[in-house]
Simulated assay, not measured.
Amino acid sequence: MPPFSDTPVFDGHNDVLLRLRRSKKEDPAKAFLNGDDEGHIDLPRAREAGFAGGLCALYIPSPSREKDADGNFPTPAQPEALNETMAMAHLLFDIERRSGGDVTVCRTGADLRRAIAEGSFAAVFHIEGAEAIDNDLDALYVLHQAGLRTLGPVWSRPNAFAFGVPFRFPSGPDIGPGLTDAGKALIRACNELKIMVDLSHMNEKGFWDIAAISDAPLVASHSNAHALCHHSRNATDRQLDAIGETGGLIGINFGVLFLNRDGIKDTSVGVGPMLDHIDYVANRIGIDHIALGSDFDGTTIPAVMKDCRGVRLIIDGLKARGYDDEAIAKVTHENWLRVLGTSWGE
């Protein structure tokens, strides 16, 4: 296949596997490969958009949407989480197997660059919330052998490893305790295996615990600037500075709840707030530390974007704001490729 685009977009987070799993389609892999016009991503729309791949999350929803007294979602039990993780991993590999080379599960930086150059959708096996992994970490090592290359220890709920930051506005991320002893062991094991640790959904104490332990770049795959939107999910200036100092990056989340200054789910905002967050982070820590982390199929995006084809609006917006081709390439894909390569020891 030809390359996706002269300006391909590699994205830091999507939930397409969960969408397909929840859809109860008879053949979800076929729906992704042939296109189903549901949600935000399928292969035909990705190719049309120059959307060349990204971190494909294996996320296990909470058993219910009922929060506890502290506003936390319930945590799924480890056996059920492991079963669901294996089912979504199977779906990812089934999509790759049946794609005829049009989808590649990438395990190295070379895999990523080759897939994008050849026009194959470059998927990275990512876990969001480590409930599938027990304290002994045996599953981590097996999943790594299967292709796991990035992991967020928590979603926005507590688990055995850390305390995920609850969804609150207005609020800072300093909510709850830091890493448990098992969480510290998990981070050390990820460093050993060269699995990138994702700090999105981590509360502030957990963030700084990881910063003290990890020898890899600090990465928040789908978060925004707290200075512009005072949501607990967004990164403070001090956190942004630490990300920049370690050579890491933050991927801008397209979710309107994390973009809008007033914290409301207003889908009429357009792409201007995304560009504002990109400007802010670029000015604060440099263009080398900003990328995209859409959260496609996992959040409510500006209506004007519609689906993954809307990423071209961001590129047009960056050009209109005076970003040159080199800077745009960094934001759209090069920063992700560099940081993933570094995290994977390449």
Score class of each variant (00 low, 15 high):
6 D>E: 15
12 G>E: 08
14 N>P: 05
14 N>Q: 13
15 D>Y: 13
19 R>A: 02
20 L>K: 03
24 K>T: 06
24 K>C: 05
28 P>Y: 00
28 P>F: 00
32 F>E: 01
34 N>S: 13
38 E>H: 08
39 G>I: 06
49 A>K: 05
57 A>H: 02
68 D>F: 07
73 F>M: 12
74 P>G: 10
75 T>Q: 03
80 E>L: 14
82 L>Q: 06
86 M>Y: 10
91 L>W: 00
92 L>G: 01
94 D>T: 15
102 D>F: 02
103 V>T: 07
108 T>R: 09
109 G>D: 12
110 A>G: 10
114 R>K: 15
114 R>D: 14
116 I>F: 12
120 S>F: 11
132 A>S: 15
142 V>T: 14
145 Q>H: 15
152 G>L: 12
175 I>A: 01
180 T>I: 09
198 D>W: 10
214 S>N: 01
214 S>G: 01
215 D>F: 00
225 A>I: 13
226 H>K: 12
227 A>E: 14
229 C>P: 11
234 N>H: 15
243 I>Q: 01
247 G>R: 07
251 G>Q: 09
252 I>K: 10
254 F>G: 03
255 G>E: 02
256 V>W: 05
267 T>D: 09
269 V>L: 01
273 P>E: 03
278 I>G: 02
285 I>C: 03
291 A>S: 14
302 P>N: 03
304 V>I: 13
307 D>W: 04
310 G>F: 05
314 I>N: 00
315 I>S: 01
316 D>Y: 02
334 E>I: 01
336 W>F: 14
343 S>Q: 11
344 W>A: 04
346 E>L: 11
